[in-house]
């Protein structure tokens, strides 16, 4: 197939790498300007490159959610204020809470400094929501599932089945509610009469699907790996999880935790990699990981680094470089993402 004239998009995992990297960059900085850059870059790239598929609406939904969160945050900060210095904008009546809620203040002066602080600080949350929503708008979920590493194969298949069936079941629900009319049912919606037929249909489907998968060799294990597999990775993952828990407890009680944390991540990584190598399935026409994807990866890591550096030395140069790295996917892709 000729891929030259096709719309160039990225490997779905590259989109996710980009989104998650920007989220990490977000977490590493509190600078309002840097956050604004990350948010702008995400929105520009996503709106320029998303397709018309249902999941492409994720960013719009994300922006809505983030705005609602921002609003709630402001309202809470206004109602449950902490007294502080600054120019008073308006004053809410102070409500006396019972004795046992001593530390909590309701109402009182609202200062512009406080609102400003809350708003600026909310940008972090805003950016966090937007970056992930951007990635999920751009990455085709089905292709994402198909590109998962082998260790997630089973989960991936279950999710492929369900993402394939969701629109189908939504249509079935419509069909069933029409059918209710045919029995002379006058109610507009009835859970019993809609959910039960849908449920029966889905169970029947599950049984048929299980047979069809079985009859196509799903779950077939070559003799070599049939016995004794999975032990080593399981143990490594168990150790990793245990150490992880230990390090988190250390962190919570305030002692040093960095070394145990590093160990736990190491064990988990080993376990997952080992488990992944035992996978016996093959992949048909995997989506290629080209130099464009590599470039986006490098740029994303660059964005994280820049965000960290900017904490110490912020200047317009760094801000410009950050914008450039965040926008990298825009430069290596063209047109709307293909569904």
């Amino acid at each position: 197939m000729n891929r030259v004239n096709e719309v160039r998009t990225l490997h779905p995992l590259a989109w996710w790498f980009w989104g998650i990297s920007l989220a990490i960059a977000t977490s590493r900085t509190a600078n309002v300007w840097l956050l604004a850059i990350i948010i702008t870059a995400t929105i520009v790239v996503t709106f320029a490159r998303r397709s018309n598929d249902p999941w492409a609406a994720a960013l719009t939904i994300g922006i809505k959610i983030a705005c609602v969160a921002l609003f709630i945050r402001m309202v809470i900060a206004i109602i449950f204020g902490v007294p502080g210095d600054g120019r008073v904008l308006f004053t809410l009546p102070r409500i006396r809470l019972p004795e046992w809620l001593a530390g909590i203040l309701l109402g009182g002066d609202v200062t512009s400094e406080r609102l400003n602080f809350v708003l600026m600080e909310s940008l972090t949350i805003f950016a966090l929501v937007i970056t992930l929503a951007g990635a999920s708008s751009l990455a085709n979920p089905k292709q994402t599932l198909r590109s998962l590493p082998g260790i997630l194969h089973e989960a991936g298949v279950a999710l492929i089945i369900s993402t394939t069936l969701i629109p189908h079941f939504a249509m079935s629900l419509k069909r069933i509610s029409q059918a209710r009319k045919l029995r002379g049912d006058e109610k507009r919606f009835s859970f019993k009469r809609s959910v039960i037929p849908l449920f029966e249909e889905s169970l029947e489907r599950a049984l048929i699907m299980a047979e069809s998968m079985e009859a196509r060799g799903y779950g077939h294990k070559p003799d070599a790996v049939a016995g004794g597999r999975k032990k080593a990775p399981t143990i490594l993952i168990l150790i990793g999880t245990g150490t992880l828990l230990f390090s988190l407890l250390q962190m919570l009680i305030g002692s040093r935790y960095a070394i145990t944390l590093a160990f736990s991540i190491f064990f988990l990584a080993c376990g997952l990699t080992l488990g992944n190598q035992m996978n016996t399935r093959s992949k048909y026409r995997p989506i290629p990981w080209r130099k464009e994807e590599l470039l986006v990866m490098v740029a994303s890591i660059g964005a994280i680094t820049l965000a960290i550096i900017a904490n110490f030395a912020f200047n317009p140069l760094i801000a410009g470089a950050l914008l450039l790295t965040c926008m990298a996917p825009l430069c290596v892709t063209s047109g709307k993402a293909r569904s």
């Binding site: 249902p54 994720a58 960013l59 959610i65 992930l132 929503a133 708008s137 629109p167």
Partner: peptide, 8 residues
């Protein structure tokens, strides 16, 4: 994944 509910 399908409805765009991916977030933190």
């Amino acid at each position: 994944l399908l409805t765009g509910g991916v977030g933190p």
